[in-house]
Design a protein around this nucleic acid. Sequence first.
DNA 1: TCGGTCACGTA
DNA 2: CGTACGTGACCGAG
Length: 572
Amino acid sequence: MSSSPLAALTAAGFRRGELLALAIGPGGELGLAWTSGSWAGELDPAALAAVEAELRPRWTCWSVDPLRELVRRDLRVATCWELAAVHRLLFGGWRADPALSWAALHDLPASGLPESGQLDLLGPAGDEGVDPEQPVRPDGYLRPEWTAGGWAANPDRLTRWAALALAGAELQQQRLATLKVLGNAPATARSESTAELLGAELGEDGLPVNLATAEQLIGSIIGPRPATAAEAAAQRERRDREVLSLVSGDYDLRSPGSVKALLARIGIEVPDTRSWRLEAFREVHPAVAALLAWRKAERIATTYGYDWLDRHVGPDGRLRGQWTGSDGAAGRMTASAGLHNLPAELRPAVAADPGWVLVRADLGQIEPRVLAAVSRDRELARASADADLYAPVAERLGVPRPTAKVAVLAAMYGGTSGNAAAALQGLDAAYPVAMRYLRQAYDAGRAGRSVRTYGGRLVRMWATPDGLSFEEERANSAARGRFARNAVIQGAAAELFKVWAVTIRARATALDARVVLCLHDEVLVHAPEPVAAEAQRLVADCLIEAVRRWAPDDAVHFVADLSVVKRWSEAK
DNA sequence: TCGGTCACGTA
DNA sequence: CGTACGTGACCGAG
């Protein structure tokens, strides 16, 4: 194996765009496998860059780990096939390791999965006298010794492990091809895979943050950075006193029980002490307003304070977290390090580098538009032609716009707010196709049946727990119904969003721009200032391209709000 | 030390 | 009887 990967692939007749599986060992050893060959050797980024440039393969792997290794070595590949992401799409749930994924693709029950520790003690389950270099046991499950890390033991195993990923990917493709959903499941598998790759890049690149601004913002809320633990304690005590000085008695503001006692002392009886509930008592006693202000500051101090800054923002001014391409429920992207719940007050600190800009874009009213698309409701699709979808809906229903909006949201999420009942009936009459779609998801969930999103993601329902009262059982079913109804909308929206995001990722490289944040329906792109206008146009064009690839037809109109800014907070 | 609960930020 | 996520503090059980 002295030749380069590119030479080996070319000699074997590898065609552009084919699946090329890779496995990377802990020491940077590389195994490659494709339909007509394999290769093992040291991971040389330049050699793989040559493969990418020449053959643009679909890099195929069991998990996002090898992709992350490539990203770490500054190798940005165009496309991939990530088996874990596709497993979650096909089979639902969160767990998606090779052992489970392989078993599922062979219709073997998860309950029969061999465990690594017990195997030798209990004796082999059809494993005796069989070649240990063979990763698949006679009973069809993967050998635990391999899945526990043994796959990286030597070059031969590395290529076999890659070949197994290749075989798994092909089985996944067969399943996707026969999946009965309205959307394009194979295409969803590709965009979901690439979203994992995007997540790896987001984790490596980070979100540009102006450290001085961040320090200043935090300082204005909780005071200057304490030099010692004693100073920090003093600051904390000073914050507490702002509230406690307004009441008599000693209370622990961090303990809900104690806060409840404090409130009782000033004549306020509440079932819990959540801010929205206390909001109503703001005028009753000055301590309430002080407590609400304390809560805000405490949130910054504990979750988004100097500690957070030190832990998650590097000296290069990049906020880095761990990204996943899809959560366990409907398939949204998730991020740690506060990237998805950064308080609005801190957003001025998210700023482009000097000479750069942020292109910010968010999808407008994505959920009702997605509902129109996935349910194929022609009438609701007609409403999507309006930049404000709720306006034609309101007109059709003969109600004020706010009522129409509440009714649509209530239909999708089961909202309770006031008297949406009449408007809901109007929706049933005006948009029966969309409403039937929602009802079917709700009924499936209530009955405990799993649902699939438009793009094919299986959303599993949980079983009713034992020993519930009649009332609890009903509440459980209703919760499942709401969950399912929400999942088919939120999940489909997440699928469209990811198509958009990975399209931007692919196109933006031409401008030297990069996606730096994905936030469910919003995307931030860091772009060189001279190409700001082009980058903005690119993001808009990518939405058109994404919708064309994702939607069943062109009946539904999607809109994005776009702006070029220096700071995230400047937008909108 | 751990899981459950409360609370709260984002979409 | 909106849903989803990540985070951090407290609290009671072990």
